[in-house]
């Protein structure tokens, strides 16, 4: 996965996206907060949702409990 490497660690782009999710946001807002291209944010969010790190409600993404638990250790 692009957001989690073979060692199970978050990649740099995944960390950026998770850190930007201190407030729930839609992908285009996250692209603005992270300076990542929108396609990277969308693909990253999809992978992190599959990994249980984020969840989406009506197009707005938020950290899950698991996402919150990995974030502070990485900051």
């Amino acid at each position: 996965m692009a957001c989690i490497n073979a060692q199970g660690e978050l990649t740099e782009s995944a960390e950026k996206i998770l850190a930007a999710l201190d407030q729930p946001a839609a992908p285009d807002a996250l692209a603005g907060r992270t300076s990542l291209p929108l396609f990277r944010v969308r693909s990253g969010l999809r992978e992190m949702a599959e990994a249980g790190l984020v969840e989406a409600k009506e197009g707005v993404y938020a950290l899950t409990e698991r996402g919150r638990s990995v974030l502070p250790a990485r900051q």
Partner: peptide
């Protein structure tokens, strides 16, 4: 850059 869908653009 990982798995990408055309719709991501």
């Amino acid at each position: 850059f990982g798995n990408i869908r055309l719709e991501d653009f």
